[in-house]
Each structure stands twice: as structure tokens, then as C-alpha cells.
């Protein structure tokens, strides 16, 4: 399996750990990355908000740099990069005029792009749906049993439309973490936005949003929140201290990438998985995991029905 790889700007600084560990687990799973040569920024949400055509042209340059015959699919590990690549390709395919104008702009740099040539994928989607949970299981050398991992998806894995998971109740990462053996509670806030760039505009607004998310995870006794986007990671991790001082709380929830915990289950040395790059320490989580009792073989006894209680409705199968 060979894919083009679009690391995104965060990979060079803030989310170096995500980029590095993604490459490690990709190798273990037999996914080959071909990094786009001389890729540029996707424009995040800022570029699109102010000037539409240059924003599309900016993203399209990356698509144009890909050799579509060799790698007809491009993986972005960052949700914002992923959605911008996907949006540009789809809107160019849908709107003829946009396609023409973007290509006129690209031609100024001796480039061209035919919409539909390169399909954009999120790295989580590729791991869960192309590689598959069974293949992941085969690579596992140890279970994550004993850890309560709260999956947090943020905005762009199910939204705005035709995405790889449900906009309100995504399951991909839940299933992945369960496959790794972790306890995965049903986190009701898993698609509520992390606030994005709001940290730069209104501390009050962003800390309120982040506190909501952290409180929800805390109530589930999270040993860590697991993410697949550098922006989500940055906000929840770097501002956790500010949330604590603003709200007199004491959250100590490490925010880790799914690629990092996969590395643990694949038997990679925790030292190489760069947990120390998190502002909130992962030490307690790692110690808990290392000292966890091996999963007991005994099947849990079925809980006896409370005589007074009314029956619960069955959950809808996804």
C-alpha cells in the first residue's frame, strides 16, 4: 500500500511526535509513504475565510505536485489539512468555473491539476478502513488493557459531509482503541469542536470550550484522551494548565495521538514514542499500563437485573 504523504506544517514543530510515530506504525503495517516534494501550507481556516480563490490555488498546488499515477491517494494526518485537500478536490470537480480559474493560477507556476485525480484521506481512516482492525490486531504484541482511553475526534472526521465517519457519533477510533485492548467509554463530547484558533482570539471563549471537553473526559476517569489532529492536541494539551487556573480545576489528562498508543500495543519502546513531548505528562498513564494486571480470563458475570428498573432501549447498531 503506497500513498502520498502530506505532513502539514504542524509536523515540523508542534506535532513532530504525531508525524514520527505515524511513520513508525505505517512501516509496521506495511503502508508506504511518498512525501510530497516541497509541499506548502493548506491555509488552515484562515486563508479560506478571507480570499477564496487564492486559498483553493494554495491547496491545489499540493495536489498538483503529486504523481497521481504512482500514488492516487494522499494521506494527511492533520484533520484541517485533510479537510482542505478534500474540499479543494471536490469543489473543483463540482464547479467548472472554479476548476478553470484554479488551473489558470496553477499554470502561472507551470502546474496543473485534474479534479478527482488524487483522493484525500485521513490517516485514521486509512489505518482503520484500508489496513483494517484485523491486520492491526495481528501486529499487536501487548494489550492496552487496564487503560481507560477516551477517543476524541473533533470536527473534521465526520463533517461537513460525505466523510469517513458519522458527524455526531463516529466509531472508527472507538473500535481501533477497543481492538488495542483498552477500555473505551462512550464519550458524548467526542465531536464537539476544540475551539480551533479561538485560543488566539478570546482566551475566555476557548478555555470554556476546552474545560467542557476536559470535564467530560475526567468524568469518565480518562487515563488519556486520544486524538488524530495536531490542533486538537495543542489546544487540549498546551492550555490545560490555563483551564485549571481559570476554573480552579486540576485536570492532568495527557493528550496523545492514536499513533502513539498503537506503538505501545505494537511493542515499540515507549521512549521512542515521544510521549514526553506532551505538556501534560503521560508518566502516570504509562506507569499504570506497565503495572496493570494481565487481563483476567474469567468472563465477567452478567449483572443481575435490578427488579425495580425499567428496561433500557437497545443502542442502534452502527
Amino acid at each position: 500500500m503506497k500513498y502520498a504523504w502530506y505532513p502539514g506544517c504542524s509536523a515540523e514543530g508542534n506535532s513532530f511526535a504525531y508525524d514520527e510515530t505515524s511513520r513508525m506504525i505505517a512501516e509496521a503495517l506495511g503502508i508506504e509513504f511518498q512525501e510530497i516534494d516541497d509541499w506548502n501550507c493548506c491555509g488552515a481556516t484562515e486563508y479560506f475565510s478571507v480570499n477564496q480563490l487564492p486559498a483553493y490555488a494554495l491547496v491545489a498546488r499540493n495536489l498538483a505536485l503529486i504523481n497521481a499515477e504512482e500514488t492516487p491517494q494522499v494521506i494527511a494526518p492533520c484533520s484541517a489539512c485533510y479537510i482542505n485537500l478534500k474540499k479543494t478536490d471536490e469543489k473543483m470537480a463540482k464547479y467548472e468555473q472554479l476548476n478553470t480559474e484554479v488551473n489558470v493560477a496553477l499554470a502561472a507556476g507551470n502546474l496543473s491539476y485534474e479534479p478527482g485525480a488524487v483522493k484525500s484521506r485521513h490517516f485514521l481512516d486509512v489505518v482503520c478502513n484500508d489496513v483494517g482492525y484485523e491486520a492491526v490486531k495481528e501486529k499487536m504484541t501487548q494489550s492496552l488493557a487496564g487503560l481507560t482511553l477516551v477517543p476524541y475526534y473533533g470536527c473534521y472526521m465526520g463533517r461537513p459531509e460525505d466523510n469517513f465517519d458519522h458527524p455526531e457519533r463516529p466509531q472508527t477510533m472507538d473500535t481501533l482503541l477497543k481492538t488495542l485492548g483498552a477500555d473505551v467509554p462512550d464519550y458524548s463530547l467526542k465531536t464537539i469542536c476544540c475551539g480551533g484558533h479561538m485560543t488566539q482570539l478570546s482566551a475566555e471563549a476557548s478555555l470554556r470550550i476546552l474545560r467542557h471537553l476536559l470535564e467530560g473526559a475526567n468524568q469518565l476517569n480518562a487515563d488519556a484522551m486520544v486524538v488524530g489532529c495536531p490542533m486538537c492536541q495543542l489546544n487540549l494539551d498546551a492550555y490545560q494548565k490555563d483551564v485549571n487556573s481559570a476554573y480552579k480545576t486540576n485536570y492532568q489528562i495527557p493528550i496523545v495521538y492514536f499513533s502513539q498508543v498503537m506503538g505501545l500495543a505494537f511493542g515499540m519502546d515507549p521512549e521512542t514514542l515521544m510521549f514526553e513531548r506532551g505538556i501534560v505528562s503521560s508518566k502516570a498513564m504509562l506507569e499504570k499500563w506497565l503495572t496493570a494486571e494481565p487481563a483476567s480470563k474469567k468472563r465477567r458475570r452478567r449483572e443481575k437485573r435490578d427488579k425495580n428498573a425499567l428496561p433500557m432501549p437497545k443502542q442502534l447498531e452502527s
Binding site: 458519522h166 455526531e168 457519533r169 462512550d186 458524548s188 433500557m312 432501549p313 437497545k314 443502542q315 442502534l316
Partner: peptide, 18 residues
């Protein structure tokens, strides 16, 4: 079927009823 609107939590929160 209220379970089709997951943000209302029917089937997840015991005290949500149809």
C-alpha cells in the same frame, strides 16, 4: 426511531424517554 438522532442520547442516557 429516536436513536437516529444521536445528540439526544436516547439509548445512551437512561433518563431520556420517547
Amino acid at each position: 426511531d429516536a436513536r437516529r438522532i444521536p445528540q439526544y442520547g436516547y439509548g445512551r442516557y437512561p433518563n431520556v424517554f420517547t
